[in-house]
């Protein structure tokens, strides 16, 4: 990885139709998953993998406001090693989040998919996948345009 510089100004433009459709996608995904605490864990983990400062700032803020456990937030980046901190359902969702986020290394392994399918019914699984996809999309829009954390212009 080469050093990152901060000299370039990037566009803050985003088509209104893109913003509202992606907003609708996120909202539909969260509704279908109907587990707000898990939704934040998933969105934070994907944003960690994609290095999205804007999204981390936003979703850590939301998670804390909604009463997420500090210990879970602290240990999320090392969830596989954090025994006793995440339950089996959360672990299945986080493993799926990682596999779906890091497609460039291969595919989504059967073991990861099947473990998720054990903990979520088909509707829940489809919406969990949609949520992972939605946050990956926000990550790309924010990192691509280098939107600073906390910015109101995005």
């Amino acid at each position: 990885m080469t050093a990152r510089t901060t000299s370039t100004t990037r566009t803050t433009r985003l088509d209104d139709g893109v913003r509202s459709a992606l907003g609708a996608l996120s909202a539909a995904a969260k509704r279908g998953l109907s587990d707000p605490a898990l939704a934040e864990l998933v969105q934070i983990r994907a944003s960690q993998l994609n290095h999205c400062a804007f999204c981390l700032d936003m979703h850590l803020g939301i998670a804390r406001k909604e009463g997420a456990g500090e210990r879970q937030l602290d240990l999320l980046a090392a969830w596989e090693e954090a025994e006793g901190v995440f339950d089996a359902r959360e672990r299945a969702a986080l493993a799926l989040t990682e596999a779906v986020t890091v497609l460039t290394e291969g595919f989504v392994p059967d073991g990861v998919y099947e473990e998720a399918a054990r903990h979520f019914d088909v509707g829940g699984l489809a919406h969990l996948l949609a949520l992972i996809t939605a946050i990956n999309s926000w990550n790309r829009l924010m990192v691509g345009r280098r939107i600073p954390p906390g910015s109101t212009q995005w």
């Binding site: 990885m1 080469t2 990152r4 510089t5 000299s7 370039t8 990037r10 566009t11 433009r13 985003l14 088509d15 893109v18 993998l49 994609n50 290095h51 999205c52 986020t101 890091v102 460039t104 990550n139 790309r140 829009l141 990192v143 691509g144 345009r145 280098r146």
Partner: peptide
């Protein structure tokens, strides 16, 4: 596409910005 390796380098962004006027650049990212 490959955000997991780091970020979107300035050189890559600048090259795109040299060829794509707004709002086409924002549309390309989208």
């Amino acid at each position: 596409t490959v955000l997991t390796d780091g970020f979107v380098p300035d050189a890559v962004y600048q090259k795109a910005a040299a060829h794509f006027e707004e709002p086409e650049l924002a549309q390309l990212i989208a």
